[in-house]
Write a protein that binds this DNA or RNA. Sequence first.
RNA 1: GGCGCGGUGGCAGAGUGGUUAUGCAGCGGACUGCAACUCCGUAAACGCCGGUUCGAUUCCGACCCGCGCCUCCA
Length: 465
Amino acid sequence: MTSSLKLHNTLTGQKETFVPLNPERITLYVCGPTVYNYVHIGNARPVVAFDVLFRLLKRLYPEVVYARNITDIDDKIINTARDNGEDIGALTTRFAEAFSEDMTALNTLPPTIVPYATDHIAEMIGMIEKLIEKGHAYPSDSGDGNVLFAVQSMQDYGKLSGRSLDDMLAGARVEVADYKRYPGDFILWKPSSDDQPGWDSPWGRGRPGWHIECSAMIEKHLGKVIDIHGGGQDLIFPHHENEIAQGCCAHGTDYVRYWVHNGYVNIDGEKMSKSLGNFRLVRELLKQYRGEVLRFALLSAHYRSPLNFSEDVLNQANATLDTLYYALLGRGEKIEAAADVSLADEHPVIVALKDDINTAEAISAMHAIAAKLNKAEPADKPALKAELLACGELLGLLNQDPTDWFQNKGHNDDGLSNDDIDALVAERNASKKAKNFARADEIRDQLKDAGIQLEDTREGTRWTR
RNA sequence: GGCGCGGUGGCAGAGUGGUUAUGCAGCGGACUGCAACUCCGUAAACGCCGGUUCGAUUCCGACCCGCGCCUCCA
């Protein structure tokens, strides 16, 4: 009997055994970006975390359909385009591409489906009509073109975020507006002025509210009820709460079986956010650190814990990856990874990941394999190397050639080409042979000052940058 | 005000009612012309106060501190 996948479900606050609706076809949806600027490392956390879940699910089940949307209609987009004097379509295309590039640099697999909100306006309108029909939504009484969801029409509204309507109003931060019958009601459709993008609808020319696109795209691509819906904790309320309201009330069914939310990336103990301005763009970080370093840093803590982001964390991630890549590189001998090695169902790394995606535990297990690999007899190395690589594959790590890892750290600020270095290394070896250790050490120090380390192995000298 | 989360060794970060997390950094040793890598060994922690228990970092309660959501936000 193999252990089963367990996931923390925000709906119950418990770690639960994952029981799919249909074990032949797993459905996963993760909220993607609203494309009006570059994403920061906090935005990248769910993408990387759920990429690991996607990889794990693919290992455990025959088919996994993973959808991650692009929200390309939103007031922030409209405002940014106006400020830039840029066409909205050009803006959203530009940042959707940038997002895709950044996430590729973090070695995330492309989702099965990347639906765009503006390709699903008809589905959204259809869903809103259904909600009105069933008495869960209404066009505003003033006839101004707004359509609202009536939260009081839903028995257990607030169950995901664990709050009652009374609690929410007590916060006194809900927007009271005269087009709402109840202050907690939220917008499904809003009118557009002539200079704003809009689509014809039964309620006049307008555009969708924030939450409806996810519900409509989930129904179209994954079904009325899906297995797993992921996202950052800050989406629990109102976004996911409202998605539940829309999905459950429109379909008269459940909406999502397992809600999975990742914790924040913090800076100096505070949440990284666009509004606080304390964010670090993935794009900027990639100039200084390789994508794998960023990915490793994001995976070094459990996905639900806060992750304090700092230079220190990134440097440690880099050093730790060095250790793992050294094991793959070997002590100068060539190690060919054995072919056709697959991890046992109860392999420590798989067991760790099945326990609510415990990546820290999985990485620890990888270190154990690396240590074994370092110590192993030559005959045992190919299998261990293959095992370590297979573990890395599950986590989306260690997919580079070890020599490249050490020689191409991405920042060649030493001004030396690989050929220059090879020439100096050759000169040093000649000096060593002539017992001219002073000159040999001089060369090594010179290279060291340039950030290049030398290692003398039985198979010759190798260098790392 | 309502609801919720967390405080682990220098740093990062898992986990557990009683025996090592793990990694980075440190220290000692082996290897090396000297290094680096690797190996062997080593030190160091569970916010504070009570309670339950033979025994608590792990369970319960209070307290202190930090953070988050209730508004756009991954």
